[in-house]
Lab assay of single mutants.
Amino acid sequence: HNLTITQGKLFFHYNPKLCLSEIHKMEEVSGTKGRQERNDIALKTNGDQASCENELLKFSYIRTSFDKILLRWEPYWPPDFRDLLGFMLFYKEAPYQNVTEFDGQDACGSNSWTVVDIDPPLRSNDPKSQNHPGWLMRGLKPWTQYAIFVKTLVTFSDERRTYGAKSDIIYVQTDATNPSVPLDPISVSNSSSQIILKWKPPSDPNGNITHYLVFWERQAEDSELFELDYCLKGLKLPSRTWSPPFESEDSQKHNQSEYEDSAGECCSCPKTDSQILKELEESSFRKTFEDYLHNVVFVPRKTSSGTGAEDPRPSRKRRSLGDVGNVTVAVPTVAAFPNTSSTSVPTSPEEHRPFEKVVNKESLVISGLRHFTGYRIELQACNQDTPEERCSVAAYVSARTMPEAKADDIVGPVTHEIFENNVVHLMWQEPKEPNGLIVLYEVSYRRYGDEELHLCVSRKHFALERGCRLRGLSPGNYSVRIRATSLAGNGSWTEPTYFYVTDYLDVPSNIA
């Protein structure tokens, strides 16, 4: 807008934040220059609390790290170098490059900038070799853009010569660093050979998330399962459950009422301010606690030095998902009996873990797994792929695949051998790939016309006998059925096997 004052003059007093240069501009645009008398524009009460600059400061050096910015700028000295009290560095987070010096300023003089007072450097006698002032900004957020400017702080001049310097606002972004852990990993099994893994992005990506790394490792069953005799009275049979499938998407929606109208769909109840505040506090606490764990609990591995020492970490090797089922080394339970199943799973520490690289999504279907087997899954978020990966501390989750139908069934015939004193040795093959492992066998036998009897055969007993022995049988026709019990439950009964026990007292003698 054009402003013209045809008559009258300007009068400025007691404006401590208004620089004289701005008042002189007002004289020019209003056409009143030359009308004012000496005392109409006070030299001592206008701009006496402001830094009124008329020179431009330029930054000469900028260096960044993930949490620091090192700045240096060209030296500046007023005509009387004693008038320079120091520099004021202003900075704040700036997602967009549209910041002005006066953003967030209120009537009390406060604003949204963080201000650092910096002492002037030592003055050199040689004007050509003056030290460049600077400042190291610490405690910054990774991968965050900051708006920065600097200006001088000078003393009051009796001659009211307006001098000083100020830089333009520059924008500097800190470097990326390792992201925080992925949030809320959930693993479920939808079949006997697959596990579905879902997660949420890290709360602090500290860069642009480029991919996720998912490692999985087959877990050995508890050692007590191999040692305890679950045929003993009072000892509860062990059981394991597989990871249940995901709930429906509708039930997972946030901010939804727990109660549904019987007449149909209901609208979600909005969260109160107290609920939102509580969630923010919980989120802040979780982030602080995660940072504490990362800094205190997890110790970084030592990389190899120039002395030739090897990095103890196993090298990563990509495998196809079809090879995942046989990740671990199978060892027989008892070496003397080769027909026992290889369900003991000690994992070799030198073995390469299978892994998958996930790009542009937060889910993965891990296939080719062994049925009813526990897996430990390790999830890392990465925001750099080359020249070397920059990934987060791992988040861990466990899951067990679903049982395989008929995996616990005894394959092959049940054979028998009759000894003296009416002892019958029953023999059968253990299931080759049971659900988890076989903890015991149930032997059901009966003599024709009598009630059915049951015998429990422990895992250890089966390994020693290759089956079991029935003792003290009365003469007669017998039928026997056997079924295995694994961590997933009972298998199917075998087809009945028949044998006849004679009275050993009636056996004919070869003595003449």
Rank of each mutant, 00 (worst) to 15 (best):
C468G: 02
T373Q: 15
A220R: 07
E433Y: 08
W242A: 04
L235C: 07
L473P: 02
P314F: 15
V501G: 01
E442T: 05
R471Y: 15
R466P: 05
G472R: 05
T494K: 03
M402Q: 15
S474E: 14
K236N: 09
N208A: 04
A405E: 11
H454I: 12
D291I: 08
T340R: 08
R319I: 05
P312D: 14
E420D: 10
Q380H: 14
A395K: 13
S509T: 14
N422P: 02
E227L: 11
N435I: 00
Y212P: 00
N383M: 10
P475Y: 09
V297E: 09
K317T: 08
R353K: 04
V439R: 10
S304D: 15
R466M: 09
E430M: 12
S315I: 10
T415G: 05
P332E: 15
E452T: 04
A330R: 01
M402F: 15
E433S: 13
F226W: 04
S203T: 11
H254L: 12
E350L: 09
A484I: 04
S305A: 11
S458G: 05
P431R: 01
N208H: 05
R353G: 15
R316Y: 02
T373D: 03
V331I: 15
T415Q: 13
P387A: 13
D222Y: 11
R447V: 08
R390V: 06
Y500Q: 04
L277D: 05
R447F: 02
N421Q: 07
E265Q: 14
R390L: 10
E356H: 09
Q219L: 13
L369M: 10
G234I: 13
G436D: 14
E404V: 09
S223K: 11
P346T: 14
H425T: 08
N326R: 08
E452Q: 10
F499A: 03
P238T: 09
R319T: 05
E451Q: 15
P270A: 13
S398G: 03
D250R: 09
N383W: 03
T241V: 15
L213V: 06
P434N: 04
G472M: 10
P270V: 09
A488N: 13
A336C: 14
D323V: 07
P431F: 01
P434I: 05
L232M: 08
L437M: 04
R481V: 09
S486T: 10
R218E: 10
L235W: 13
Q380G: 06
S398L: 14
R240Q: 04
D311Q: 07
R481C: 04
T494I: 03
F337W: 11
S348L: 12
V443I: 08
F289C: 03
G467S: 05
V296S: 09
S274E: 06
L505A: 09
V423H: 09
F419L: 09
E430T: 09
L437F: 04
N339I: 13
S444P: 00
P238K: 08
D323H: 11
D250E: 12
G325Q: 15
